[in-house]
Simulated assay, not measured.
Amino acid sequence: MPTSPLSRLLLAGLTLTLLAPTLSGCELSSSVPREMMPPVTQTGANKAGALVNGATWLPLAGVLFGSPAYRVRVNRTPQSGRGFEFSLSLTRQAPEGSEKYYPKPDSNIRFFLPSVLAPGSFALNESVTAPFPSEQGRHGVLTDYTTSPVFHYPTGSGPASGQLVITRFDTVARVVAGTFEFTGQRGAELIKVTQGRFDVIY
């Protein structure tokens, strides 16, 4: 027997009522970002990431007129035979209003190497002092801008150390790629950065 227009309307309304919680749940979950670590590459993909105390941390330029997500500098050193100075700055600025969904929503990871001749492994174990960014010795530092005052977690000596491995250092194609891990320290507080990787152009 054919269904009347009124019955069809009531049936459609009932279906939408039953689906409403599911749809609203989907909408809510879609606002929470699923950040995936990029693969380890050496192609100039302009990708980077790490785990900060076990949580995924990706560079993100989510604020209008904010800092760029990637900033790379490779300059020939004035001293003969020392190659190039290398600095890498990875910035994370979550979109305004969504900061609660991002671990360390306003933060920065930065490295400085005073002398790079070729790909290789570089210990991050030379003491540096604030203010940051600093160009003093081999180091890494995580800076948390969500705190007041700003918290810096640099490497240095003892437990606050780490390693940056450059797997591609191409001054012709202007590509630098590699991996990193380090422990930064502020007073007695340690912060661990693990499984880091970067593949950037400059």
Score class of each variant (00 low, 15 high):
residue 20 A to E: 13
residue 20 A to I: 09
residue 22 T to A: 15
residue 22 T to M: 14
residue 23 L to H: 13
residue 26 C to I: 14
residue 29 S to Q: 15
residue 32 V to S: 11
residue 32 V to F: 08
residue 32 V to Q: 13
residue 33 P to E: 08
residue 33 P to I: 05
residue 33 P to V: 10
residue 34 R to T: 13
residue 35 E to N: 13
residue 36 M to P: 01
residue 36 M to S: 13
residue 37 M to T: 09
residue 38 P to F: 05
residue 39 P to K: 05
residue 39 P to T: 08
residue 40 V to N: 09
residue 43 T to Y: 02
residue 43 T to M: 11
residue 43 T to C: 03
residue 43 T to D: 15
residue 44 G to T: 10
residue 45 A to P: 03
residue 45 A to H: 04
residue 46 N to K: 04
residue 46 N to L: 09
residue 46 N to H: 06
residue 46 N to E: 11
residue 47 K to W: 03
residue 50 A to L: 01
residue 50 A to R: 02
residue 51 L to P: 03
residue 53 N to Q: 12
residue 54 G to T: 07
residue 55 A to M: 10
residue 55 A to V: 07
residue 56 T to S: 08
residue 57 W to N: 04
residue 57 W to I: 03
residue 57 W to K: 10
residue 57 W to A: 06
residue 59 P to E: 03
residue 62 G to W: 07
residue 62 G to R: 04
residue 63 V to A: 05
residue 64 L to I: 12
residue 64 L to R: 14
residue 64 L to W: 10
residue 65 F to G: 06
residue 68 P to K: 12
residue 68 P to E: 11
residue 69 A to V: 07
residue 70 Y to W: 09
residue 73 R to K: 15
residue 73 R to L: 14
residue 74 V to A: 12
residue 75 N to Y: 10
residue 76 R to S: 14
residue 76 R to W: 04
residue 77 T to A: 13
residue 78 P to E: 11
residue 79 Q to S: 15
residue 81 G to H: 04
residue 81 G to C: 06
residue 81 G to A: 09
residue 82 R to N: 10
residue 82 R to Q: 14
residue 85 E to R: 07
residue 87 S to L: 05
residue 88 L to A: 10
residue 91 T to E: 08
residue 91 T to R: 13
residue 92 R to S: 07
residue 92 R to Y: 07
residue 93 Q to S: 13
residue 94 A to W: 02
residue 96 E to L: 15
residue 96 E to K: 13
residue 97 G to I: 07
residue 99 E to W: 00
residue 102 Y to H: 10
residue 103 P to A: 10
residue 103 P to C: 04
residue 104 K to R: 11
residue 104 K to S: 07
residue 104 K to H: 14
residue 105 P to D: 03
residue 106 D to G: 03
residue 107 S to I: 04
residue 107 S to K: 00
residue 108 N to R: 15
residue 108 N to L: 12
residue 108 N to M: 13
residue 109 I to A: 02
residue 112 F to G: 00
residue 112 F to S: 01
residue 113 L to C: 02
residue 114 P to C: 04
residue 116 V to Q: 02
residue 117 L to V: 04
residue 117 L to D: 03
residue 117 L to C: 06
residue 118 A to M: 05
residue 119 P to K: 01
residue 119 P to A: 06
residue 120 G to M: 02
residue 120 G to I: 00
residue 120 G to L: 00
residue 121 S to P: 00
residue 121 S to A: 13
residue 122 F to S: 00
residue 123 A to N: 11
residue 123 A to I: 01
residue 123 A to K: 12
residue 124 L to I: 03
residue 124 L to A: 01
residue 125 N to S: 11
residue 125 N to H: 02
residue 125 N to D: 14
residue 126 E to H: 04
residue 127 S to I: 11
residue 128 V to W: 01
residue 129 T to G: 07
residue 129 T to Y: 09
residue 130 A to G: 10
residue 131 P to M: 06
residue 132 F to P: 01
residue 133 P to E: 07
residue 134 S to K: 10
residue 135 E to M: 12
residue 135 E to I: 06
residue 137 G to K: 04
residue 137 G to W: 01
residue 138 R to C: 12
residue 139 H to R: 09
residue 139 H to L: 08
residue 139 H to S: 04
residue 139 H to M: 12
residue 140 G to I: 03
residue 140 G to F: 04
residue 140 G to E: 02
residue 141 V to S: 02
residue 142 L to Q: 10
residue 143 T to K: 05
residue 143 T to L: 09
residue 144 D to N: 09
residue 145 Y to N: 08
residue 145 Y to T: 05
residue 145 Y to P: 07
residue 146 T to N: 15
residue 146 T to Q: 13
residue 148 S to A: 13
residue 148 S to P: 02
